[in-house]
C-alpha cells in the first residue's frame, strides 16, 4: 500500500468541472416487505397496516466535483450514499433538482456484473457491456484485456453461478475500467477481491487520477480512503455533513460514530 501512498499527489486536480449537482432531492416509495406478494398485501390491508414507506434518500444536496479528484464518500448505512451514486450514473432519476455530468460515467456498484448466474462470464460480460451502451465490436476489441486484467481466462466460459464473490468483483472492476470512463464510481464493490487484486485495482484508480479523471469511492474502509482520496464527503440522512480533507472529515465521522481509532472502523474496501 505504501507504493500507493507515494503516488498520491494533490496538485493533479485540474479544477475542471466533472459533475455539478444542484439542490438534488431523491424521494421514493418502497414496500415494507422485501418480497411483496398478493398475500402480504391482503394481510396488511386486513390488519390496516401501512403497505409502503416513503424514503427521502437525498435531501436538497448541492455538490461540485472537478476532474482530477478522487472523492471518498462515507456515512452510516442508509445515509444516501448509494442513492446519490445511482442518480449520478442515471440509474435513478432525481425527484427534484438537477445533475449535470460532463463526461462518460462508468459504474462499479455493489453488485457488479453477472446479473444472470446461469449464463457464462463471457455472456454476462457481453450483456453488461451492451446494456451499458457499448457496441458488440467495442466489447470484442476489449474482451481479452478485460478477462486478462480480471485474471479469469480459465473460467470465463463457466456459468457465473460457479464464480466466487471475489471473481465477480474482479470481473466487474475490469469491465468498469475497460469502458475508459471519465468518471468512475465504485460503491463498496472491491471488498470481495483478494489482497493482490485490491492493490492492483487501487493502483489502477491512482493511474486514472493521474490522468485527471474522477473517481468516486463509496466505502467504509477509512484507511484506504485516507490513502487514495483527495477529498472525503460525509453524508447523513441524504445531506452533506462535511466535505474536505480526508483526515479531518474521517476524524469527525469517527467521533460521530464513537469508534475512535478502533481497527474495525478501518474495515476493508
Amino acid at each position: 500500500m505504501s507504493s500507493l501512498s507515494e503516488s498520491k499527489s494533490s496538485d493533479v486536480n485540474s479544477k475542471k468541472r466533472a459533475i455539478s449537482i444542484e439542490n438534488l432531492g431523491l424521494v421514493y416509495r418502497t414496500t415494507l416487505d422485501k418480497r411483496p406478494t398478493f398475500k402480504t398485501r391482503i394481510r396488511r390491508l386486513a390488519r390496516r397496516k401501512r403497505q409502503t414507506r416513503i424514503v427521502h434518500a437525498v435531501n436538497n444536496l448541492s455538490l461540485e466535483i472537478n476532474y482530477g479528484t478522487v472523492l471518498g464518500v462515507i456515512g452510516t448505512n442508509g445515509a444516501g450514499k448509494s442513492s446519490l451514486m445511482r442518480v449520478i450514473s442515471g440509474i435513478l432519476p432525481p425527484t427534484s433538482g438537477r445533475v449535470e455530468v460532463f463526461g462518460k460515467v462508468s459504474t462499479l456498484l455493489a453488485l457488479g456484473v453477472g446479473f444472470n448466474g446461469k449464463l457464462t462470464g463471457r455472456d454476462n460480460l457481453y450483456l453488461g457491456g451492451l446494456a451499458a451502451g457499448m457496441s458488440r465490436a467495442q466489447i470484442e476489441s476489449k474482451f481479452d484485456s478485460i478477462v486478462e486484467f480480471a485474471g479469469l481466462e480459465e473460467v470465463i466460459d463457466a456459468p457465473m453461478r460457479t464464480y466466487s464473490s471475489g471473481m465477480y468483483s474482479r470481473l466487474a472492476f475490469s469491465v468498469a475500467i475497460s469502458l475508459d470512463p471519465d468518471i468512475l464510481i465504485i460503491d463498496e464493490a472491491l471488498s470481495a477481491g483478494d489482497a493482490r487484486y485490491k492493490v492492483k485495482s487501487l493502483e489502477k484508480v491512482l493511474e486514472m487520477r493521474n490522468q485527471d479523471r474522477v473517481i468516486i469511492i463509496v466505502s467504509h474502509a477509512m484507511k484506504t480512503l485516507k490513502t487514495v482520496c483527495d477529498e472525503v464527503l460525509w453524508l447523513d440522512h441524504g445531506k452533506i455533513v462535511a466535505q474536505g480533507d480526508p483526515t479531518t472529515v474521517i476524524k469527525a465521522y469517527r467521533e460521530f460514530l464513537h469508534v475512535g481509532d478502533a481497527p474495525e472502523s478501518d474495515e476493508d474496501l
Partner: peptide, 10 residues
Amino acid sequence: GAKLILNASF
C-alpha cells in the same frame, strides 16, 4: 434482471 437494473442505466 435486478443486478443489471441496479448497476446500469438502460
